[in-house]
Nucleic acid binder design. Structure first.
Lengths: 346, 346
DNA sequence: CTGTTAGCGCTTTCAC
DNA sequence: GTGAAAGCGCTAACAG
């Protein structure tokens, strides 16, 4: 019941109690060597007695650095982004930085105010998963602090970014399906306006070209935004006169929607997709998933950012682009045993 | 290439350019009515030209309020907590508050420094999922700002909290298994030192007592911390001389571990568990899951906190305890019935 | 309608 | 070893 405004004791209060000036309190708390042991002890005693905590806001103002970085993700409910956030946090913590987190909900129009708000709060840098391709507000933010892009690249802005091997992963996973003889692979994709959507389609396409065939346009569905829309699209495809014999999905939510569609349709089809997800190994489905370390995207982004912060004085290095590697994980029937769903019953 | 220290233009700079004092700039930016239109326009022009942004750190210091709340969760990678965080963020945003997020990684010994750090940053309040039962540091934090507990109750501290109906949910789900005639239901639980662990065991037990039987101690495993330990425990149980005929799991990770164990053992057993999870409906397993709205826990916690903030002056209300309701969801059961309460209105 | 003064809590600089 | 003064950027309170 003690939380009052104007928030608690100050260094002056501590000093008064310890019979020293605020300056000396400051020195003690900073571990400045030039303080006598007896004084030091009295100060610590006063700090304890008052429950004193140094006001970081005042320090930030004086020192010119808030000790915070901002992170903006599009959907924290997606494990991909919560892991990314954990990666950012992990590295930030190592450098004594805290994380201000905002969720754009994939609404590009909300992003500017989130970004501006973080800048107002004097974050020392930003890591952003941009929700849209209009990035004017990010250019604006870059006038104030370094900005690192994660998962999606900057559009016409010169700055660091950390991406996944979208093209490579999609190509490789698609190639797995094609290698099994499938020629009618459906594509279930997120909006092509998103970098990942475009790149993964490109990879899907490239895998086809490499074996000299072209995907059937009738099997391509884009603009899927969640599990539900993906499920509907998959059901549509399965109901076509010439249905696909395999599916490729560009992210975890789409894969899950497609899997639900297969389940409801009582069918099983080989499915390849970007992003691994919980229990993918026990579905008993022939799955080919592009897996990668989402935490690592966050860690790398944080490292790039912190590197900028530490060299803010020196000539800035050219903007860097890091790709986090992918690997293909196969579940169910990699090479043609037991093509059904049932989990290895007795 | 522009991000320098001492971060950019101040109101004085803007004022100079607009030929007014800093005070007038402040008024314009605050939408104070007492400013002439011509002045207002000049100020806005100068703001735009300089790319000026109000320094929130300085405002915080002056106004006595950081505009931030702190959230500490135990594991952001668990969808339960990322959704909780989203709920907090949602309500916080409505009130113009930002969220400083820390992840304790379920390491109780790391929690104090996280909490202290947030207090140092002048968060106006805290929402905490406590990692341990030693909560001295939280009592300390409460001397500075209001603290709301989420998902786990305070231990001997007088403050608000938002919980799940742990006991009720566990009892109901267990009762479903018992109603099907199972008398040997295994219990796979998280550490009993955790409130949820204890409550859910209590519910499990109560369901047995209600039909006049007692659980077999040989079927009870506690202290499971992740999917892997749960899997191992489940495999152990399945290998016993008198194995269980059904399983009860106290959270999503444990359920997933148990499901993996069943899959590897080539068996199928009815499984009940706390927390719903992605694709639970398409596993084709007889599942009875205790589902609830994790976002809502965050929203409610944020509301309690903000209520405290808004009434920090008036006599504080007695500490409140909110329970978020659970409902049982059944998958893959031949009967397909939704037992217990009616399908929870919504 | 606009400006001046003072001070939020802290720390850098300079004095003793 | 310690303290006094000044100021980080902003805004409430008081002029004018």
């Amino acid at each position: 019941m003690t939380a009052r405004r104007g928030s608690g004791p100050t260094m002056l209060d501590v000093g008064k109690l310890a019979q020293v000036s605020a300056m000396t309190v400051s020195r003690v708390l900073k571990n400045d060597p030039g303080v006598s042991d007896s004084t030091r002890e009295r100060v610590y005693a006063a700090v304890d007695q008052l429950g004193y905590r140094r006001n970081q806001t005042a320090r930030s103002l004086r020192l010119g650095g808030s000790g915070m970085i901002g992170l903006v993700v599009t959907n924290l409910a997606n494990p991909f982004y919560s892991r990314l956030a954990l990666g950012v946090q992990e590295v930030a913590t190592q450098y004594g930085l805290r994380m201000l987190l905002s969720n754009s909900g994939e609404q590009a129009d909300r992003e500017p105010e989130l970004i501006d708000g973080l800048v107002d709060h004097q974050v020392e840098g930003l890591i952003v998963v941009p929700a849209g391709s209009r990035q004017q507000h990010l250019a604006r933010a870059m006038r104030h602090v370094p900005v690192v892009f994660a998962a999606r690249p900057p559009a016409g802005l010169d700055t660091d970014c950390v991406l996944v091997e979208d093209f490579h992963g999609a190509r490789e996973a698609t190639a797995c399906l094609l290698a099994e003889g499938h020629t009618r692979v459906a594509f279930l994709g997120n909006p092509p306006a998103l970098y990942t959507g475009a790149e993964r389609l490109r990879g899907f396409w490239a895998a086809h070209e490499e074996i000299g065939i072209a995907p059937d346009h009738a099997l391509i569905r884009q603009g899927l935004v969640d599990s539900a829309t993906a499920e509907q699209a998959a059901l549509d495809l399965l109901g076509q006169a010439e249905p696909p014999t395999a599916l490729f999905c560009t992210n975890n939510r789409i894969s899950q929607g497609a899997i639900r569609a297969l389940y409801k349709a009582g069918t099983t089809l080989p499915l390849a997709g970007f992003d691994d997800f919980d229990l993918s190994d026990v579905l008993g489905l022939p799955l080919t998933l592009v897996s990668y370390d989402a935490d690592e995207i966050g860690r790398q982004a944080a490292r790039l950012l912190i590197d900028r912060l530490e060299h803010h004085d020196t000539a800035p290095p050219a903007s860097r682009r890091i790709s986090v590697p992918t690997r293909v994980v196969r579940h169910g029937t990699p090479s043609g045993q037991q093509p059904g769903r049932p989990p290895a019953d007795a």
